[in-house]
Design a protein around this nucleic acid. Structure first.
Length: 445
RNA sequence: CGGGGUGUGGCGCAGCCUGGUAGCGCGUCGGUUUUGGGUACCGAAGGUCGUCGGUUCGAAUCCGGCCGCCCCGACCA
């Protein structure tokens, strides 16, 4: 993308309403625009990041055999009356009425609807196990939206639902989801720790929340330092291997890690003092096993081996996709701006032409741009006739992981400068080597 | 929902107390400057002062209602 053709309304001054770093930076980098309390437009740069996150979530879900689909944002009220949650959910649910006076609602979640779909089309244990998911906008009419997209009223969420014949099968689905979530966050450059949680209004027995450590997090967290060091890395995972999924769950849940809701001071005290950590975290996902709560209430049953009609065991699993954009920035920024991890960056690299209008510099920059596009790096080329300082400041603000600086001084020596946003380190390379380096970084993306 | 703020060009703010031609900085547009970390200069466009009503010869300014937004708390992905 050429910056001269892009829509990137960056702000030099910080809008007054933004209190935390991610909100300020998203507004300043021209990623979002607030339309009402807790409701945002996603401008091209913000949309691109959101899309990257969505793509990673899809890839990791499908890798585990989970089936993508899409349910509507607007739901009929009668499904919720059937489950009993129409009254229970309270004023957080946005209720609407259509021209025929039919009661509708903007979905805050989809358990009822997915259960309805399942019960009308699935009747045999032979079709199990099954996990369906979608990534769709939700609305919860929060009393006090805040922190930009981290606590909006409208938000994008991945929610998935597993249907299993037995509790043991459903617990495998639970473990499998835990593994997919660990991989998903790790690919985004985040350390997200699973913590035992309260089940809240969704209800259920087994549940973990995933928290990204950040000073601005809404929850107080208590954990064993060891858990923050765990990595899946590139280990091969067979999602149908129950023992492997269970072992990974055990590996991540053995060290103590809890939020203030479930914190147990006595158990915490058993951890050696040098490994005890108290901090704050942002919740970016949650997994639940809730048994037959909805299937029994809504008649989602299958025939088992013996011909008995039994309610299916279910779980639901969510990732806050739009919230992750904020959480990522909270975890990765400095005083100049955002520092995107390579996995989620909106553009792979920036090209700064220090002498736009100069024939040699333009030709070199254009050449680099074409080659990086061809190599799949998806560069952003700053081809504006602007001051160098302004160009660098823009690049620092929007936080692309790599920057190539092209200027007359370097070109006399036949080199350009490749700079890492994360470390600030620069290297002079010939242009071909810079392209090769970045092509390697983004290979397979 | 309780408490505290705030609303003036796209953004950040002053003006309000003490009523009398709506201002500053940034950004934007047109020039000059050719710049190696947000240069400088000249010129220009852009505002029903949140909204409705009241007081007044006259309201951004005083009074009242309503609405929006922000912060703290309770609540929540």
């Amino acid at each position: 993308m050429r910056l001269s053709r892009y829509f990137l309304p960056v702000l030099k001054e910080t809008p007054a309403e933004a209190q935390i770093a991610s909100h300020r930076l998203m507004l300043r980098a021209g990623m979002i625009r607030q339309q009402a309390a807790g409701i945002y437009s996603w401008l091209p740069l913000g949309w691109k990041v959101l899309n990257r996150i969505e793509t990673i979530v899809h890839e990791e879900q499908r890798r585990a055999g989970h089936l993508p689909m899409l349910m509507p944002t607007i739901q009929p009220a009668d499904l919720w009356q059937e489950s009993g949650r129409y009254d229970a959910y309270g004023p957080e649910m946005l209720r609407i009425r259509d021209r025929h006076d039919r009661d509708l609602l903007y979905g805050p979640t989809n358990e009822e609807m997915i259960t309805d779909i399942f019960r009308t089309h699935v009747g045999s244990y032979r079709q199990l196990p099954m996990t369906l998911y979608h990534i769709q906008w939700k609305f919860r009419d929060e009393v006090r939206p805040r922190f930009g997209v981290m606590r909006g009223r409208e938000f994008l969420m991945k929610d998935g639902y597993n249907f299993d014949l037995t509790k043991a099968d459903a617990l495998h689905a639970y473990n499998r989801h835990l593994v997919t979530y660990l991989r998903t966050y790790e690919r985004m450059g985040l350390t997200a720790i699973p913590m035992r949680a309260d089940s809240g209004p969704i209800g259920g027995d087994d549940t973990h929340e995933f928290l990204v450590l950040a000073e601005t997090g809404e929850s107080e967290v208590f954990y064993d330092a060891d858990v923050a060091d765990l990595r899946l890395g590139d280990r091969a995972i067979d999602y149908d291997d129950r023992a492997q999924c269970e072992a990974i769950r055990a590996e991540w849940t053995a060290p103590y890690a809890r939020t203030d809701e479930t914190h147990d001071e006595a158990r915490f005290a058993e951890i050696p003092e040098r490994r005890r950590r108290v901090g704050r975290g942002i919740e970016v996902g949650q997994i639940f096993y809730f048994g037959t709560k909805y299937s029994a209430a809504m008649g989602a049953t299958v025939l088992d081996h013996d011909g008995n009609r039994v309610p299916v065991h279910m779980g639901s699993h969510g990732i806050g996709v739009s919230r992750l954009v904020g959480a990522l920035i909270e975890a990765h920024h400095d005083d100049k701006g955002i520092r995107w991890p390579e996995g989620v960056t909106p553009f792979g690299a920036g090209i700064v032409n220090l002498r736009q209008g100069d024939a040699k510099a333009d030709a070199a920059s254009e050449g680099l741009y074409e080659k990086l596009v061809a190599a799949g790096v998806d560069p952003l080329y700053d081809d504006r006739e602007e001051r160098a300082g302004a160009k660098f400041a823009t690049m620092d603000l929007i936080g692309l992981p790599w920057r190539i600086t092209v200027g007359p001084r370097g070109l006399e020596k036949g080199v350009v400068e490749l700079t890492s946003r994360a470390t600030g380190e620069s290297h002079e390379l010939d242009p071909e080597a810079a392209v090769a380096r970045l092509a390697e970084v983004y290979a397979g993306r």
